[in-house]
């Protein structure tokens, strides 16, 4: 019974995608990608922009987000309860301003 249902479901999906002209759709997607690759291959501007995007994301995600922030810059809390405690402390403790002068 379950095999028949599975078969019917697959047949339905096949007819659905056939109706959507999947091949043509995939061909269009492939065309867009090949057009993109061709543009990058033939255009100096596209290569420069791609290089800038690559370097930028290496710095933003690799260096800043992946290394510098978690290791050195991010304030460390043991868990959410510790952080709640710290924030409540900052909210409820009277302050005074200090300057370098």
């Amino acid at each position: 019974m379950s095999a028949r249902v599975t078969f019917a479901f697959i047949a339905y999906l096949w007819s659905f995608f056939k109706h959507l002209k999947v091949r043509q759709f995939l061909k269009t997607i492939a065309g867009i990608f090949s057009s993109g690759f061709e543009l990058i291959r033939s255009s100096r501007l596209a290569k420069i922009l791609l290089l800038i995007v690559f370097i930028k994301f290496m710095i933003f995600y690799g260096f800043l987000k992946g290394f510098l922030y978690p290791k050195y810059l991010k304030p460390h809390y043991e868990n959410d309860a510790h952080r709640t405690e710290q924030v409540l402390h900052d909210l409820t403790t009277p302050h005074k301003i200090v300057t370098d002068d």
Binding site: H89, T93, P94, K96, I97, V98, T99, D100
Partner: peptide, 9 residues
């Protein structure tokens, strides 16, 4: 207890 606020920060 009084908390210091660093104005430079």
């Amino acid at each position: 207890m009084i908390e210091n606020i660093d104005l430079a920060l």
